[in-house]
Design a protein around this nucleic acid. Structure first.
Lengths: 152, 152
DNA sequence: TTCCGATACCTTGCGCACGATGTAATCGTG
DNA sequence: CACGATTACATCGTGCGCAAGGTATCGGAA
């Protein structure tokens, strides 16, 4: 009997282990920039489109306020972003890059290629992996929220 | 010009997001057993082969003592495992399942199939994913430790 | 206009993860 | 045997990541 504890579990553990291994690869590179991987992700979001409310950053990264609020406070304390309430809606906090935040993009220019080297995947495999992971994420998310039944 | 911050980064973020989505899927299932996902992983290791030193558990899960020591203390506090020094080598702590730890395997019998459903991957895709993730983990680990040069 | 609910965010508490440091036991070498 | 190095763990500090609870603001209906 093929142990049922050793089939899909392997996929989940492989995912868990790979995610941490990749984060480990980022660590020394980002460490020189004074960044963690989640902080780097926030900067990626802002480099693509500056001055965004916390809500949008959270949606882009699938992170909630409990994670983002203190993280953004640290980015602010490190002088990379500013946070300001919207005058027309005082509930909303808009996060914007400082000059140092923008220039960090240049300092991080070598990171993607270094990581690409670390992953060691050819183009086709990587595209395939991304597609599979996105389907998996969508499927797992649909299962968790909404459950097998579902309902907004 | 295809933004270099949007290529390999996508693979890494997809990995990061997928890993958390899968953990989210486990959470309600394991929550009923009073377990977290890392705790469940430790039990998987012990269900396969009981009475193992902390070192072996760490190697199996790629986790260090800083993570495992408090985690195992919690499992012990919850009555699922015991920890005992080896008489022939007082440095080594052997982790063993209690009766409750063993019986939890039965209570968790439905978890793998539920997760398999949540992932929504066919057999071929899943095998392919596991293989890709393992190569990726090995490559990233080799890059991080040992660096591009390498040296034991 | 006055509520009432929704929205956007913050805070707290807990459990990972990891680097750094500490400690006791064991091993290896002279 | 002595003693320095290694091994196996434990602990501490920091930073996620998430659930739960709190606050202030906004929008809409009575």
């Amino acid at each position: 009997m093929p142990d049922e504890f050793l089939l899909d579990e392997q996929a989940c553990f492989a995912l868990y282990a790979a995610s941490r291994a990749v984060t480990d690869a980022y660590r020394p590179l980002l460490g020189e920039l004074g960044l963690t991987y989640p902080q780097y992700l926030v900067l990626l979001v802002l480099w693509e489109s500056d001055a965004r409310p916390v809500k949008e950053i959270g949606e882009a990264l699938h992170l909630d306020y409990g994670t983002l609020s203190p993280l953004l406070k640290r980015l602010e304390a490190n002088g990379l972003v500013t946070r300001a309430r919207l005058p027309e809606d005082e509930r909303t906090v808009v996060v914007s890059l400082t000059e140092e935040g923008r220039s960090t993009r240049t300092r991080a220019a070598g990171v993607p290629s270094a990581i690409g080297c670390a992953l060691g995947l050819d183009d086709a495999t990587r595209r395939d992996l991304i597609a599979t992971l996105r389907r998996l994420t969508a499927s797992a998310t649909a299962y968790t929220h909404g459950g097998p039944d579902a309902q907004p």
